[in-house]
Amino acid sequence: PQVPQCKALYAYDAQDTDELSFNANDIIDIIKEDPSGWWTGRLRGKQGLFPNNYVTKI
């Protein structure tokens, strides 16, 4: 099955070790969508939390 993905609308710099940094237009694999607004994703071999208001699902 296809892994859900999202595209970064803005760059995000991780504020903690469990967060994921990314650049605008990066494509992130979505591991888990949480109602809190912090999703778990994977990018370039690293997994971490990121704010879903920085991305749009594709």
Rank of each mutant, 00 (worst) to 15 (best):
A8Y: 02
W38R: 15
T56C: 12
R42D: 07
K7C: 13
D29V: 06
E33M: 14
G48M: 03
L20K: 01
W39F: 11
A8L: 01
W39H: 02
A11L: 06
N53S: 07
P51M: 04
I28T: 05
L43R: 05
D34I: 00
L43I: 15
Y54S: 08
T40A: 09
A24D: 04
G37S: 03
Y12S: 01
T17D: 14
K46I: 05
R44M: 09
D29H: 09
F50I: 15
T17Y: 08
D16L: 07
A14G: 09
F22E: 01
D13S: 09
R42F: 09
P51A: 06
D26W: 00
S21K: 07
N53R: 14
K46C: 11
G37M: 04
E33Q: 15
Q5V: 12
D29Q: 08
G45K: 15
D29L: 06
N53M: 15
D26S: 04
N53T: 07
K32I: 15
T56R: 11
W39N: 05
E19D: 04
Q47A: 08
T17Q: 12
D34C: 14
Q15R: 13
L43D: 01
A8C: 09
R44A: 12
W39D: 02
N53Y: 08
G48C: 04
G41P: 02
W39G: 04
K46Q: 08
Y12C: 00
Y10C: 10
T40R: 11
F22W: 00
D29T: 12
D13E: 12
S21D: 08
G45L: 05
Y54R: 11
Y54K: 10
D16G: 10
E33S: 05
L43Y: 06
T56D: 13
P1M: 13
A14P: 05
A24G: 08
L49N: 05
D18R: 12
I27S: 03
C6Q: 01
D34A: 13
A24V: 13
L20V: 01
L20I: 13
K7F: 07
A24L: 09
N52F: 14
K46F: 05
Y54P: 02
D16W: 08
G37F: 02
A11S: 14
E33F: 05
R42E: 13
K57Y: 15
P35I: 10
D29G: 04
P35Y: 07
W39P: 04
E33Y: 04
E19V: 05
V55E: 00
T56L: 08
K7I: 14
D26P: 00
T40F: 04
T56S: 13
I28S: 06
S21H: 00
D13G: 06
G37L: 03
Y12T: 01
K32G: 11
Q5C: 07
Y10K: 13
C6R: 02
A11P: 14
G48T: 01
Q5N: 13
L43N: 06
N52M: 08
A14T: 05
E33L: 06
Y10L: 10
Q47D: 05
K32A: 13
N25W: 08
G37Q: 04
K7R: 11
T56F: 14
D29W: 06
N25D: 13
S36W: 07
I27H: 06
A11M: 10
T56N: 12
N53W: 10
D29A: 08
I27F: 07
K46V: 13
K7T: 13
R42V: 12
Y12H: 07
I58H: 06
D13N: 12
Q47E: 12
Y10D: 07
T40M: 15
L9V: 10
S21M: 02
V55I: 07
L20D: 01
L49M: 06
K7P: 00
N53I: 07
Q15A: 12
I58F: 11
A14F: 02
K57L: 04
Y10Q: 13
V55T: 11
P1R: 05
C6S: 04
L43A: 11
A11K: 14
L9E: 10
W39M: 06
E19Q: 11
E19T: 11
Y10E: 08
D16R: 14
N23A: 14
P51C: 06
V3A: 15
Q2V: 09
Q15V: 09
V55D: 02
Q47F: 09
I27Y: 09
D13R: 09
L20S: 01
A11I: 03
S21A: 07
P1S: 14
Y10I: 05
R42A: 14
K46G: 05
I30C: 05
P35T: 14
K46M: 15
I31N: 01
I30Y: 00
I31D: 05
Y10N: 04
Q5W: 07
D13F: 06
P1C: 05
A24C: 08
P35H: 03
D29K: 04
L49S: 14
I30N: 01
Q47Y: 15
I58M: 14
R44N: 15
Q2H: 08
Q2Y: 05
V55Q: 00
N23C: 13
K7D: 00
D13T: 14
L9G: 03
V55Y: 03
N25H: 09
L20C: 03
G45M: 10
I58S: 10
V55H: 03
C6V: 14
K32P: 00
K57C: 04
Y12K: 04
G37V: 02
E33T: 15
L43K: 04
A14L: 00
A14Q: 06
E33W: 02
T56E: 15
D26K: 00
W39T: 06
N23D: 13
I27Q: 06
P35D: 14
D29E: 12
N23H: 13
Q2D: 14
Q47C: 08
L9Y: 03
T40L: 13
D26G: 00
Q47I: 08
T40P: 00
G41A: 02
